[in-house]
Design a protein around this nucleic acid. Structure first.
Lengths: 328, 328
DNA sequence: ATGAAAGCGCTAACAT
DNA sequence: ATGTTAGCGCTTTCAT
C-alpha cells in the first residue's frame, strides 16, 4: 500500500492534523515535533497526495495548455518556456494539441476541466467562444496566448500582429517588390497580419490585388502545395509573406524543387523565428515573436489570477521584430 | 459553487449512487432513470471531478512524459504522437523537460508521483536508477522510451542503436571515407551507437582513432562549437556521424560559416530524421527512427500495464533506417 | 502546542 | 432498480 498521512502520524506518534501542519508548514508546532515528523516522512518516503489535497479546496498545481500542434517548433519552443516558468512556480503542464478542430478543442477543454486544472493557457485558435465563456463564468483563470479577443474579457499575451504584418510587407515593398502575396493561416492572429499587409501595401502605393491573399492551416504541406501550384500555373509572385515559419519551409521546398531561386527570383518573409528559420538555407528572413518573454509572462499572468484570485484584465502586446536573413 | 454529484442527484430526484452509476455506465438502471439523470447532468453542465474519483482508487488518466527537452523537434514530434494515442485511450499527458539534469529528473519524478499519474513514459536519459527503482517497487507502470535498461526490469520501446550506429558508419565507410568521427550524446542511446560505429569501422578495416569520439549534450550549440573548433585547429575529418539532428544542424552551420562545403569537403550523417533533416540545405542524410510507431506503441504498452495491472516485460526494438539525402 | 472530527466529491459494497 | 453508508487522503475548525 501507498503510505498515507495516517502511516506517518502513527509512526511518529502524533495526529494527522499535526502531520498536515508540517506538510503545509503552518500552525504552531514545537520544533522537536516538526523534526520528528519530518524524519518519519523521510523514512517512510511519504509523498502527500495532491489529489486528496485538491479535493479539500487546494489547487491541483496543474495548468492546461492548448496549442494547435505541439510538434510545430513555434509551439514546442513556447511550451518549453512555459513549462520552465510554471515549474518555478510549482506547477505542471498538461499539453493538448487541437489541430484547429472544434471537436478537439471542446473535448480537451472539458477533459481538463474535469481534471481540475487551475487554469488554462490557450494558444490554439478560438473556435468556440461558447465553452470558453462558460469556463470564464465559472471563474476559472484563462489567458489567451498568441491571440486576443476583446469580447471575451480575459487577459491575453500576444504579439502586435498588425505591426508584424505591416513590417513584413513594408520591408518587401521597400525592396521594390510590387507583386506581394500573403500566405495566411486560419488562425485569429492572421487576421490582423492581413490588415497590416494591406495597410503597408497602401502606404507604398501598391494596389492590393484580390487574388493575393491565401489562407490555410499553417503546416509545411500547405505552403508547399500552394507555392507549387502557383509556380506550375505560372503565377509566380515577386515576393511572398508567409504567416508562419512552417508555411515558409513549404514555400522554400516548392521553390527549390521547381528550380525557382530564393531570393533571386522570389523573395520570402516568414513569421515566428523558430529554429527552422535559422537552420534552413537560405536562412529565413522572418518576423520574430519574443517567445521567451511571452512564455514567461503568460504564466506569470495566470499565476497571479490563480494565487490572488483576482481577475486581471490586461491585454499584453509585444512588439514583433524583423530579422533580416537571406530570403529577401 | 461548482456543481457536484449531489446537485445532480437532488435535481433529478435520485440518490448520488444512481448518478454515479449513470456516470460510470454500470449497475442496473431503468432506462427512464438513466435518461432523466443524463438530462439533469446536461442541464446543470455537470462534470464529474476526476480528482474525487481518483481518490477512491480510480485512475487519474494522466500520464507523465519525461523528455530531455520538448523543444527538440525529435521529442516534440514524438510527444505529439504520444499525445494523440493517449487521448484515444482517454488519457492526458504532463510533459516535463529534464535537460539531462539529475535534480530536475528527481524533482519531476517526485512531483508526478504526488500528482498520482497513472504511469511514466521516460524518454530522458536515466540519471538516477534509484528513484526509478523505487517507483517500480511501488508498482507504478513505467516504460522506457528511446532507451533500454536490462537491470531495471521494465518494458522499453527503443530503436536498435547499435544497428543505427553501424549503418551510419558503414554507409560512410562504403563511400571511401576513412577519417570518420562521431559526435555522440551523453544519453544512454549513444553508447550503443558508438559501439556500432566502432564495429562498422572494424568491418571496413579502419582503425578507430582514439580521438575521434566526442561526447556532448545534444543541442545545436555543441555541434556548432565542436565543429568550429575542429575546423579552426585544422583537424577537419572526412566525415562526421552526428548522433542527433540537432548536433547535425550545428555541424552544418559551423561548416557553412567556415566555408567548408558539405558534402564536397565534409560528409555528414545525422540521427532521428526530424523536420530539421528535411528543411535544411543540403537536406540531411540521417538515420530515421520510426517516431510514429514508437510513440503509438509506447502508450499501448503502458496502457496495458495500467488497465490490466500486469507487468509486461517486453523490450521492443525498432529498426532504424538510413535515409539518404544530400549531405554525403 | 496538539488532537478530534467534519467535510471535500466520488465509488462500491451492502441493504432495501 | 435504487438508496444508505463507509471510506479514499487530506485540510481545517474547534476543542483541549
Amino acid at each position: 500500500m501507498k503510505t498515507t498521512i495516517y502511516d506517518v502520524a502513527n509512526k511518529a506518534g502524533v495526529s494527522i492534523a499535526t502531520v498536515s501542519k508540517v506538510i503545509n508548514n503552518n500552525g504552531k508546532l514545537r520544533q522537536s515535533t516538526r523534526e520528528k515528523v519530518l524524519e518519519t516522512m523521510e523514512a517512510l518516503n511519504y509523498m502527500p497526495s495532491m489529489m486528496a489535497s485538491a479535493l479539500t479546496g487546494k489547487k491541483t498545481e496543474i495548468l492546461g495548455l492548448l496549442v494547435p500542434d505541439i510538434s510545430n517548433p513555434f509551439f514546442s519552443e513556447m511550451a518549453r518556456i512555459i513549462e520552465d516558468r510554471a515549474n518555478d512556480l510549482g506547477m505542471s503542464l498538461i499539453i493538448c494539441s487541437t489541430d484547429d478542430s472544434v471537436e478537439k478543442e471542446q473535448k480537451y477543454l472539458e477533459l481538463l476541466r474535469r481534471k481540475q486544472v487551475d487554469g488554462f493557457i490557450i494558444a490554439s485558435p478560438l473556435r468556440t467562444k461558447e465553452s470558453l465563456k462558460f469556463l470564464h463564468e465559472e471563474k476559472i483563470p484563462i489567458v489567451l496566448l498568441t491571440q486576443d479577443d476583446p469580447e471575451l474579457g480575459c487577459p491575453s499575451v500576444s504579439v502586435d500582429d498588425f505591426k508584424g504584418g505591416y513590417e513584413a510587407t513594408s520591408f518587401l515593398a521597400s525592396k521594390g517588390f510590387k507583386d506581394i502575396v500573403i500566405f495566411a493561416e486560419h488562425a485569429h492572429s492572421s487576421k490582423m497580419r492581413i490588415v497590416g499587409y494591406k495597410e503597408a501595401l497602401e502606404t507604398h502605393g501598391i494596389e492590393a490585388s484580390k487574388t493575393s491573399i491565401y489562407r490555410m492551416t499553417g503546416i509545411i504541406e500547405n505552403g508547399y502545395e500552394l507555392m507549387k501550384q502557383l509556380i506550375e500555373s505560372n503565377r509566380i509572385p515577386e515576393a511572398v509573406f508567409a504567416c508562419n515559419d512552417l508555411i515558409s519551409m513549404g514555400v522554400i521546398q516548392a521553390a527549390r524543387e521547381k528550380g525557382v531561386s530564393i531570393p533571386d527570383e522570389l523573395a520570402l518573409v516568414g513569421f515566428d523565428d523558430t529554429i527552422l528559420a535559422k537552420t534552413t538555407v537560405p536562412a529565413l528572413t522572418t518576423i520574430a515573436q519574443p517567445i521567451q518573454e511571452m512564455g514567461k509572462r503568460v504564466v506569470d499572468v495566470i499565476n497571479e489570477e490563480i494565487k490572488e484570485g483576482i481577475r486581471i484584465e490586461e491585454r499584453i502586446l509585444y512588439n514583433p521584430k524583423l530579422i533580416i536573413r537571406d530570403t529577401v
